[in-house]
């Protein structure tokens, strides 16, 4: 069974939900603290994540490796597909093409985003406490704001539509009615999770993140 495309595709489908889908929701909720509770709330979220046990293992096996497999195998899946939305202008066919396009956008965006944030922390150029101000710098740059909005919407669409496809690929939603209802639920998920990210991105543009960051910086300098 192992080594054939049935197994790879099933693993690709599973990893998209567990852990990657779960991760995107947690990420959205953590960011949303910036909107709901400001710099302190966001700071607490970051601290909470950093206080998790065996964090490096969680990051490697829970995020990096699944992300690499899902991303690279996903590029291959996209390469294997044609787009025939010109001939078949059905909503689901548009979603099929959009799933592949947003997957590629998300792939590029996630690499860039991880480089801009997590890698900078690894390199010692930014501390976890300064992530708020780093996001403030990114969000106040109009080009970056637009690119982040596109990246976030692409990632969330890919996630939401991916749930719909996951439910079919594992044989959970079988009939047309079940698939229609799940598509409504997935649309709802798209709206809610997108809102979490967009609102937090807007919150990061606030001046309080600049100040909070310098305060945190001052604190670390004293410490």
């Amino acid at each position: 069974m192992k080594g054939n495309s049935y197994f790879s595709r099933k693993l690709h489908s599973l990893l998209g939900i567990i852990p990657l889908g779960m991760f995107i929701v947690v990420h959205g909720l953590t960011n949303y603290q910036a909107f709901e509770r400001g710099p302190e709330g966001f700071g607490k979220g970051v601290t909470f994540i950093n206080s998790m046990p065996v964090l490096p293992l969680l990051e490697i096996f829970g995020i990096y490796l699944p992300l690499l497999f899902h991303g690279i195998y996903g590029l291959y899946v996209a390469y294997q597909s044609n787009s025939n939305t010109g001939r078949f202008k059905y909503g689901r066919n548009w979603a099929f093409t959009a799933q592949r396009v947003t997957g590629v956008i998300t792939f590029v965006f996630v690499f860039w985003h991880v480089y801009q944030t997590r890698i900078q922390v690894y390199l010692g150029k930014v501390t976890h406490e300064e992530l708020g101000s780093l996001m403030h710098d990114i969000a106040t740059n109009p080009v970056m704001f637009v690119l982040y909005t596109i990246g976030v919407l692409a990632a969330v669409f890919h996630f939401s539509n991916g749930i719909w496809a996951f439910l079919i690929s594992w044989g959970i939603t079988i009939g047309p009615k079940a698939q229609r209802i799940s598509s409504y639920i997935c649309m709802g998920i798209f709206v809610v999770v997108s809102a979490l990210f967009i609102l937090s991105l807007v919150a990061f543009t606030g001046d309080e993140f600049k100040e909070a960051a310098s305060a945190a910086l001052a604190f670390t300098n004293i410490g």
Partner: peptide
């Protein structure tokens, strides 16, 4: 596993066969 759920098949089938239901089943 090659099915990507574009669901064009069920919209195109001249015999109206519920192909996507068959695939999901």
């Amino acid at each position: 596993e090659g099915c990507g759920n574009s669901q064009n098949c069920v919209r195109s089938c001249p015999k109206g066969i519920p192909l996507t239901t068959s695939i999901a089943a």
